[in-house]
Computed example of a mutant assay.
Amino acid sequence: MSDKKKVLIINRRAPYGRSNARDSLDVALTCGVFEMPISLLFADDGIFQLLGGHQAKEIGQKNLSANLAALPMYDIDQLFVCESSLNTHGLASDQLDHNPTVVDQKAIQQLIQSHDVVLTF
């Protein structure tokens, strides 16, 4: 049995305007380097991180798409998106990049309980 802690990173912030989104992806990639089991949950405004076509240069920011695209190279393929957040923002899962699994509140609770470490950004 692995002694590595399972880490869940919850992304609640929009992709730009603050460093939360970039920080969460940096943490995920760093944990991936150490082969820790990582899952990412996108909720609230964090779901906007999964929308394609960001025009980050227009606001003087670096696009997060490259960081998100790198996740599979670090064996990070457990991506989840909150169903109620999708509904709140009028989005459907097929509008999102990276094929996240849509989860309801009960599944989110189970997800949190099944991880050793939960970080929220």
Rank of each mutant, 00 (worst) to 15 (best):
M36Y: 13
F80E: 00
H89T: 01
S24N: 05
G32Q: 03
S93K: 09
N11C: 13
A66N: 07
N87R: 14
P72G: 10
G17R: 12
V7H: 01
S39C: 11
Q95A: 14
G46K: 07
S19P: 06
K106C: 03
F42K: 10
D26V: 13
A43Y: 02
S84Y: 03
L91G: 02
K5G: 04
V81K: 03
P37I: 09
A28D: 11
T30C: 10
L41D: 04
C82D: 15
G90H: 07
C31H: 05
H54Y: 08
S93I: 13
A66P: 00
I10Q: 09
I59G: 02
G17V: 11
K106D: 10
V103S: 03
T88K: 12
G60H: 03
L91A: 05
Y16S: 07
G60C: 08
C82Y: 07
A92Y: 08
V7N: 00
I38M: 11
S85F: 06
D44G: 04
T88E: 12
N11Q: 15
E35R: 15
R13C: 14
Q110E: 14
K62M: 09
K4H: 09
G46M: 10
P72I: 14
K62S: 12
F80I: 05
R13T: 15
Q109K: 08
A92L: 13
C82W: 06
Q49W: 01
A66V: 13
S19V: 13
L68W: 10
P100D: 03
H89A: 04
P37D: 08
S84T: 14
L8Y: 06
I47N: 01
S19Y: 09
P100W: 03
S19E: 15
V81R: 02
A56H: 11
C31D: 00
V7I: 15
G53S: 06
G60K: 05
I108C: 02
S19H: 10
S85I: 11
V33Y: 08
K62N: 11
E58I: 12
D45G: 00
D94W: 06
K106T: 15
V103H: 04
L91Y: 06
D75K: 14
L68A: 06
L51V: 14
L40C: 07
P15R: 07
G53Q: 05
L50T: 11
K5Y: 05
N67E: 11
L79T: 02
V102Y: 05
G32T: 06
L8E: 06
T88G: 00
A43Q: 11
N11R: 04
A56K: 12
A14W: 02
N67A: 15
S24M: 14
D23T: 12
L64R: 06
D77Q: 15
V103W: 06
